[in-house]
Simulated scan of single mutants.
Amino acid sequence: MKLKTAKRWFNWHKWTSLICTVFLLYLCITGLPLIFHEEIEHLLQGNKEAVVQNHAKMSLDKLAQIAESKYPGEKARYVFWDENEKNKVLFDIVDRPDAPYEKSKYLVLNEYTGEILGAPRTDGIMNVILKLHTDMFLGIPGKLFLGIMGILFMISIISGIVLYGPIMKKYDFGMVRKNRSSRLRWLDTHNLLGIAITAWMLVVGFTGVINTLSDVIVGLWQQGQLAEMTAPYKNQKPISGKLSSLDDAKKSAENAIKDMKVAVIAFPGTDFTSKHHYAVFMRGNTELTSKLLKPVLIDAATGTVTDSRDMPWYVNALFISEPLHFGNYGGMVLKIIWVIFDVFTILVLITGLYLWIARRKAEKQQLQLLIPKNSKA
């Protein structure tokens, strides 16, 4: 590599790393507990187990009535099924379908008995850490800012790879010069750790950038595919009177998409459907397809299916990226691997910061040594 080119890559690596290092340390530290967020939330929430009795599940409409009765004057707007919480259903209760999500009241019910098993907290420590990690409590601007930091992180990784190759032609791979100065030992350690976990850092960095675009991606889907699916109802008056059966909507979706199961039902008037439809989101049965959703629109007046389409590629990219970012694919083993790599990344960031400070300090000392000599001359 030519000297001029190498210097250009070095400057890219140095400045992109310096700009994003503090924020990446912040993200790595807040990301550590989020790798185990499901296990931690299960311990903290303290919800009861759903006892299965020798009879069929209760009507979904009846379960919705039980949930709504706890908050008079308010209605369900979303119904959730967690694949890891068997025999349970979660209701989101609000005073109006377009209410801010901060106004949601959540209730977990036993699908067989209707017993209320708990009310998940939205102000717990894990939710605070999640907000810190995703948007720093700054909303969309916070997400986009962290997305820019993620892009700088990826540039620093790529430039580091470009620089590492020519350097290691002169030395053995993984070399750490233990008999040289402290700064050289830290430099070799920084390079070794960085190149060893490069693939992981690229995956987590790339998926992190995609996750910061979640609001943009959802907005594109709402204005694109969802608008197309609901276009025939655009000029119709909102449904007056009672909505069709929630159970019928669920059964219609299951009959339309037989190789998938229901994950979420959105009521008419919410952000993920129209004022005329239930939106039933189906998930697959495999480890990968269980992270993907397929919408089925149900006419809320008649209970019939009006449209169903596969999500666009950019929405599926978001669905895949979020669990992959936190290692939520291969069970506990993958999560432990994610923790190890996260800790190594913290070490790479700290050693990189140390090397910059040490280099600045050395340059300052050299300048101080030169000044007296020049003054005597």
Rank of each mutant, 00 (worst) to 15 (best):
L3Y: 15
W15Y: 15
S17E: 04
V22M: 05
I29R: 00
L34A: 04
G46F: 07
E49Q: 11
M58D: 04
L63W: 06
Q65W: 00
I66W: 06
Y71G: 02
P72Q: 05
Y78T: 09
V79I: 15
D82S: 14
D82P: 02
E85T: 05
N87D: 15
V94N: 09
P100D: 10
V108S: 05
V108G: 01
E111C: 02
T113G: 04
T113Q: 00
A119H: 10
P120W: 06
L130D: 04
H133A: 05
F137V: 02
K143N: 05
G147R: 10
M149D: 00
L152V: 10
I155K: 13
I158Q: 05
G160D: 03
L163H: 08
P166A: 08
K170G: 02
F173T: 12
V176D: 07
R177Q: 12
R180D: 14
R185H: 03
R185Y: 07
G194N: 02
A196S: 14
L202Q: 03
G208A: 01
V209D: 04
G219K: 09
L220S: 13
L220T: 09
L220W: 15
Q222M: 13
N235V: 05
Q236I: 03
G241Q: 11
L246N: 09
D247I: 03
K251M: 11
D271I: 11
F281M: 06
P295F: 07
L297C: 01
T302Y: 10
D307E: 14
S308F: 11
P312E: 00
N316C: 00
A317V: 00
L318H: 11
I320R: 00
H325W: 06
V333Y: 03
L334V: 05
D342E: 14
Y354P: 07
I357Q: 06
I357S: 03
Q365G: 01
P372K: 11
N374L: 15
S375H: 10
